[in-house]
Design a protein around this nucleic acid. Structure first.
Lengths: 337, 337
DNA sequence: TTGAAAGCGATACCAG
DNA sequence: CTGGTATCGCTTTCAA
């Protein structure tokens, strides 16, 4: 509404002084700054986004690409979108949405038109099509997740391997010799980038520590209670004393219910750890030790990385792995004698 | 990357001709247009968003405010965000996200800075704080949902009252004399704008048609299986021969399971209609007749309304109620004799 | 520490 | 049907 020249007139300074006073890009006397800020506030001045983008070569907008596939878990996805939005706003950035069909052409479009300063990529697939686009465009792109071929890309993600290893170590150190892992839907192990990493790292660490381990997916397309129930029962029958869950909330509840039906108590007869869960597994019907995947942490890091890349386009690509943290609420104990 | 003057040079015309040829805002000879389009394509020309916004006073961006409350149903919400994005892209618009804390201040900010051409409001509460902001800003705002005090506002929504009445009429016409309605969580009847409308309209129509009716919410905070199960059982015991469900997918399954456990068959012993469901109730374990709430329809209408308002800011405010449609798959039949 | 003025890259008016 | 150019509102260099 109000323009910069009106603010300048009200504060009795030049428009360049207003610009500098508000951006802080050069030193301004305290008195002048005060007058400018007061005038801006009284007039409800907000710089015109288009003019600022044209003159300043910054839009203060990040694109967020999210390919909402059929198997997308809505609550998790929403948590990431929200976290990205909050992280961006903290740095005075807005989020522009790029959904599925537009994920690829949209990236090219917003890059070519200088609509955004950087792109954040969500829900990364192992062979993600957005990888080659990121390489072909001029503006910084940060992946929240790690595609198979990530050479030259900026990526941020929880260190899923370390998380899986941490869980295995914790159980092994506590005395367990046989661990059952229960995972996500089978399709997730093909369409998404991190489930295979958790599975492989957990298995490798269990081998390294010399303990038995099994793995079962939660079903063909989603949590299938019968599959999960059967896997839990089989694991117990075969002598497993501990579970590592990397799965949706539903799956957790099925496992816990099955354990309870067997008359076993979590944290005494059976130990359970939830790995890389976005929901709060310490507040399930039976609270579980958790190595959480925190969207806010990932998205904050992604935004910071994008900003860093904006300042220095030339430095080496960053692969930022967030160290896992263990939250204990007592669902792990030594196995029964 | 490439600018308009480069396109002009390549096509050997003036920059104004390029602008007009590409926007179609004035007639251009076929030959000239061809040359311009070819030059633009070869250079990968995409107009600079900031420059266009400054000169043309149009950003081709809509803001979408979504206050992600704790009780927000993620899948439904995601469906609306996706639908809004697709609807906007069809009109060559992008979506800028405004989440919760920013929902109000964000609206003011994007309006004052001319960052967006219009605002779409999702997840409308009866006493929504965004109403007064919409009234105080200069740019068009369209509500997808109807707040209590909607005087002077542009609103788009499914005609929930008509949907509820349609369901009651269908059952009454088929011979039912006692209908049980099962609704959403109790909090939804305070925090959201349409559950109360469905409940009230259904009850009123049942009274008008002279049939018995009961209503039960799905629980205090979400679907509580025990509550839903008890309500279903009680309704059957009291002689209800039909159900109208306005609830989450989970709740549907609980009702259907309870009916089955009683040895009753939907579409023969008991009739069931799903009202205003966003998921596909015709594909539940037992397919149900549905009067669906289709996000794509609502969002298309909202985008069109925003565009209309952009062209003509002065015409009377629009309250666009989308007529409900009945989809029959055989879950309704005459009550047993 | 402050001011004047040259762009930024489009759109759309005014001419021809 | 096409071209020249003022203009949009800000950022930033150049001068003082």
């Amino acid at each position: 509404m109000a323009r910069i020249d009106e603010v300048a007139a009200a504060a009795r300074v030049s428009i360049s002084t207003v610009s500098y006073a508000l951006s802080g890009k050069r030193s301004i006397s305290a008195e002048t700054r005060r007058r400018v800020e007061e005038a801006a506030r009284e007039l409800g001045y907000e710089p015109h986004a288009g003019a600022r983008a044209l003159a300043g070569r910054r839009t203060q907008i990040f694109a967020l690409t999210e390919p909402l596939r059929a198997d997308t878990h809505a609550p998790t996805h929403m948590a990431f979108v929200l976290a990205a939005s909050v992280a961006a706003r903290r740095r005075d950035y807005d989020i522009l949405l790029l959904t599925d069909e537009e994920a690829s052409t949209g990236m090219r479009r917003v890059a070519a038109s200088d609509l955004v300063d950087a792109i954040l990529v969500l829900d990364v697939a192992p062979d993600d099509a957005r990888v080659e686009i990121a390489r072909s465009i001029r503006i910084p792109t940060v992946f929240i997740g790690i595609p198979d071929d990530h050479a030259g890309l900026d990526c941020v993600d929880l260190d899923f391997e370390a998380a899986a290893e941490l869980a295995v170590d914790r159980l092994t150190d506590t005395g367990h010799r046989h661990v059952a892992m229960i995972g996500q839907s089978e399709v997730a192990y093909r369409a998404s980038n991190f489930p295979p990493r958790v599975r492989a790292a957990g298995a490798a660490r269990a081998d390294a520590r010399g303990i038995r381990h099994t793995f079962t997916a939660a079903g063909a397309t989603a949590t299938e209670p019968a599959v999960v129930r059967a896997a839990t029962t089989a694991a117990i029958d075969e002598g497993a004393t501990a579970f590592i869950l990397h799965a949706a909330e539903d799956t957790h509840e099925v496992v816990l219910a099955t354990i309870a039906e067997r008359g076993l108590l979590v944290g005494r007869d059976v130990s359970v750890i939830s790995v890389a869960s976005v929901f709060d597994a310490t507040r399930l019907s039976t609270p579980l030790d958790t190595i959480p995947l925190v969207p806010a942490v990932s998205c904050d890091a992604a935004v910071d990385l994008a900003l860093a890349r904006l300042h220095d386009a030339s430095c080496a690509p960053v692969l930022h792995l967030i160290p896992p943290e263990y939250r204990s609420v007592g669902s792990v104990a030594a196995p029964p004698a």
